[in-house]
């Protein structure tokens, strides 16, 4: 009798043990497509005309028409070391033979991070040849100066990543470029665009004066997503908000660009594909 009661209690303990022991997580199919793309590829490199530098250009992917995050390494050939502090000024140029034009860009700060100077260029057209990036390098104390010229190839991306918009009421054309998300995932995504005015073919100042609204849509189903946050100005013409995707597939993020109450553009959208 006692033995039997004991058996019962042992059973209960065993039962508890079994469940506790079963705590291992079930296998989850890899549906996460948010691989951190820390591996940069080298795009181009060039020697400086004077100053004994090698300038190397890196990016996460091949250059494309749109907003490209770029990373520069400056190597001092005399010491064969990376320069961590320098004044760097970019000047992207497209030489189309009959005419030349520049592009919006963002210069790096004076201090490199992990040996790299982060900067950006918005290429407005693709080209196998014609694009080059002029990089002026100067030591912070002005002791040394030089210039490197990197030839570039710019591809046409699968989906449009930058728009040129003629404001409805006139004024300088606006260049609206998608910065984030580059690797979109289902759920919350940082949404960031950069807006530049085309003041001339050589001058593209950032525009911080706008109001931006976004509306995601899944065009083949006609639905949107909840709780998006409209982008607001951060700095240098960058507007940051949140876009939510509820499922994989093809999404449009519709834009409405306003200056005060005046609607400059409400036709543009970015197509974003989630695998």
């Amino acid at each position: 009798m006692n033995f039997q009661i004991k058996t019962w209690f042992m059973g209960s303990l065993l039962m508890a043990g079994l469940l506790v022991g079963c705590k291992d997580e079930p296998t989850i199919e890899p549906t996460d497509n948010n691989n951190s793309n820390s591996d940069l590829i080298e795009i181009a490199s060039a020697q400086s005309d004077v100053g004994d530098w090698t300038v190397k250009l890196f990016a996460a992917e091949k250059l494309f028409m749109g907003y490209n995050k770029l990373y520069l390494e400056v190597w001092d050939k005399t010491t064969n070391t990376r320069v961590n502090s320098a004044k760097i000024a970019l000047n992207p140029m497209m030489d189309m033979g009959a005419m030349q034009h520049s592009a919006p860009f963002e210069n790096p700060s004076e201090t490199a991070e992990s040996g790299m100077f982060a900067c950006a260029v918005v290429f407005q057209m693709p080209g196998e040849m014609g694009w080059k990036l002029n990089v002026d390098v100067e030591m912070p104390d002005g002791s040394r100066k030089g210039k490197a010229e990197l030839p570039l190839q710019v591809a046409s991306p699968d989906v449009v990543r930058t728009h040129v918009v003629m404001p409805a009421g006139g004024g300088d054309p606006l260049i609206i470029s998608l910065v984030e998300p580059i690797e979109p995932k289902v759920g919350m995504n940082r949404f960031e665009i950069a807006v530049h005015r085309r003041a001339s073919m050589m001058s593209f100042p950032a525009d911080d004066s706008l109001t931006v609204e976004i509306e995601p849509e899944m065009p083949s189903m006609g639905h949107g997503s909840p709780n998006n946050v409209n982008p607001v100005i951060a700095e240098n013409g960058h507007y940051v908000g949140t876009v939510n995707f509820t499922m994989t597939g093809m999404w449009y993020v519709h834009l409405k660009i306003m200056h005060g109450a005046e609607v400059l553009d409400d036709k543009s959208y970015f197509e974003i594909n989630l695998k």
């Binding site: 083949s220 994989t248 597939g249 594909n273 989630l274």
Partner: peptide
């Protein structure tokens, strides 16, 4: 749930997001 629109990426979501 997966939907297959013609010529586009499949649309996928978890209607029960793997709840334990």
């Amino acid at each position: 749930m997966t939907m297959f629109p013609a010529g586009e990426l499949p649309m996928f979501m978890l209607t029960w997001p793997d709840i334990v």
